[in-house]
Design a protein around this nucleic acid. Structure first.
Lengths: 233, 233
DNA sequence: GATTGTCGCAATGTTAACATTGCGACAAGT
DNA sequence: ACTTGTCGCAATGTTAACATTGCGACAATC
């Protein structure tokens, strides 16, 4: 995600838990564990050849990203996104992106903006669908990085994986639509940010989200009452 | 925090990690561990008479709340809020509260609004400063609960403890100011929400934050250069 | 005297065994 | 046939011992 670029970067070691979290995350995005699937600690620890400690820690971290939900003595399962969840992600993304745009316009360096533009430009070189989605997420990562707002980045990371999951579903619904719209939109977005034009960027981001939301929310999994799903936290 | 009210609530057991997290959090808010203090795993596990496992898990959870920061092989320390951190909290709160107000106006039930109003009314009955701050936080909790937006609530919880820390510092700077302004503002806020007047509520929330921000950012810890010209949100 | 290399301790990271819990299967009773 | 009670297993929660790492102290050298 964000690697220090330019400076040397303090070469800190990562620990097994991070490694495990990465592997499991990629497995989920790769389709090994479908939404709703159980993630058993012993199974993972055997497969990755580590003990249950780091696996537990990794699952906790994935839970923080919303990729996994777990209940007391009932283990962890891969998050499933209901229509309501998708709506929540959409509105929360909106709030965060709005702040991000303002922060970028005010505080981003030219290097930050160049990085955003470069990722937008690179989208064409995606080999397959998964890579395309990865680039999509990377673009948004770059925007949040450019905001120079640590807590905003953390808030984004708390829904990032869920958005990834969402996009994966979306591209499966209509890959063609995705490919024809997103790269261009990203380039426009990057241009508006480089020009530090907050108004234009805000409008473009709103359209960008609306587009994504409509595709999946329209024909895909629209009707489902879903009554109430709250729980205390 | 959020307690099931009305319904029975599925009586789930909590596990030691949650208990430990609560105890440590209260210890921090109670001043036992000052910002910057080290939280040693063995020390905590001895004090709370549990093993290091649950303590580790609890520290991870507190890290998710931003109350604690930890680095590889260097343990956990209580978060210290720099002026820049305060600015970040302020702007992020702004983004979240804006969404919250919209969601409340659109989706909250009358019971939700009553709960908000009741907490606002109850603020006068605070015995000491700590209780006052607790009520302050509880008010905002109620607003987010009323938004009926799970992920928004989670985003709030990711900064909630830091805001708590911030308020604790603030009330120490000028308790009188706090007491004369906040309860009234909360009541106005509750009234605007009950009237489902989004515009008024938005303005009031902005003023509410600005007030808190100015008190601490002005005379308190202002002088630090910090290289940033911070926003007006 | 300042610098650099080595050593040791203290704290975290990791592991594996033990305890507890929840769920489903099976059986007995109505 | 449906309900109810018991049992057993499988998975998570917890614990304590072991391994690794980073930092500071001390000493040797220039």
């Amino acid at each position: 995600m964000t690697e220090e670029r330019g400076t040397v970067g303090p070469a800190r070691r990562r620990g097994l838990a991070d490694e495990v979290a990465d592997r499991v995350r990629e497995s989920i995005f790769g389709g090994v564990y479908a939404p709703g699937a159980q993630l058993r600690e012993v199974e993972l620890s055997r497969a990755l050849e580590v003990s249950r400690g780091p696996v537990r820690e990794a699952l906790l971290r994935l839970e923080r990203e919303g990729l996994v939900r777990s209940e007391w003595h009932r283990g962890a399962t891969v998050t499933t996104l209901s229509p309501r969840d998708v709506a929540e992600l959409d509105s929360l993304r909106g709030a965060l992106e709005e702040l991000a745009v303002r922060q970028v316009v005010d505080h981003a360096s030219e290097e930050d903006l160049d990085a955003v533009a470069e990722i937008a430009a690179r989208m064409d070189r995606a080999e397959d669908e998964h890579a395309l989605v990865r680039y999509d997420i990377a673009f948004h990562d770059a925007v949040y990085d450019a905001s120079r707002h640590q807590r905003l980045r953390e808030a984004w990371q708390a829904i990032r994986s869920q958005v990834h999951l969402f996009l994966l579903t979306r591209i499966r619904v209509s890959a063609a639509d995705y490919l024809t719209h997103i790269p261009g939109e990203h380039r426009e977005l990057a241009a508006a940010l480089s020009a530090r034009d907050a108004g234009a960027a805000l409008d473009l981001f709103a359209a960008h989200r609306r587009h994504a939301f409509d595709v999946l929310s329209g024909p895909g999994t629209a009707a489902e009452p879903e009554g109430t799903r709250d729980d205390a936290s």
